[in-house]
Amino acid sequence: MDTIGQLLLAYVAVLGFGLIINIPRRALNIAGWIGTLTWGFYLIVQVFDGGVVLGSFVGSVGIGVLSNVAAHYKKMPSIIFNIPSLVSFVPGSQAYQMVRNFALGKYVTAMGFTLQVVMITGAIALGFLIAELLNRLISFCILQWQRMKIE
């Protein structure tokens, strides 16, 4: 129940962020589904005690690959799908705790949260890099497969 609720919330949040940054109407639904699916990957990583960093990494790889697929399918730029879907992975909670602890003068705790923010952001960036690699690989494989079919 809790899991289904989380997935539903992920869909709603991605839809909301899509409305704010004004993505095309016919892309909203697919962006929402990408958000839901990748949040599902994140939850699976959490079940196996993978931690937030690994979860964000897996999620952003998923977002990168799925957005590319959606971009080919809908013939739209892939940023339309990957920016809204990323909203659930933003380390907002940790970033807030960082600012709060700095403001309260608890520098040791604040540094801990800073490192968490840096690591999560880094994991998301690395996830995009790996996703780019996978995208190239997928399009290469499709090309080879089409060539084999023609011959």
Partner: peptide, 25 residues
């Protein structure tokens, strides 16, 4: 100007803030 009307953007803001708070906390 093809952006969504302001009220729809506000709905978007509502949809982002509430669900993410529940998901994070």
């Amino acid at each position: 100007s093809r952006s969504f009307p302001l009220w729809l953007q506000l709905v978007g803001a509502a949809l982002v803030s509430g669900p993410l708070m529940i998901m994070f906390r």
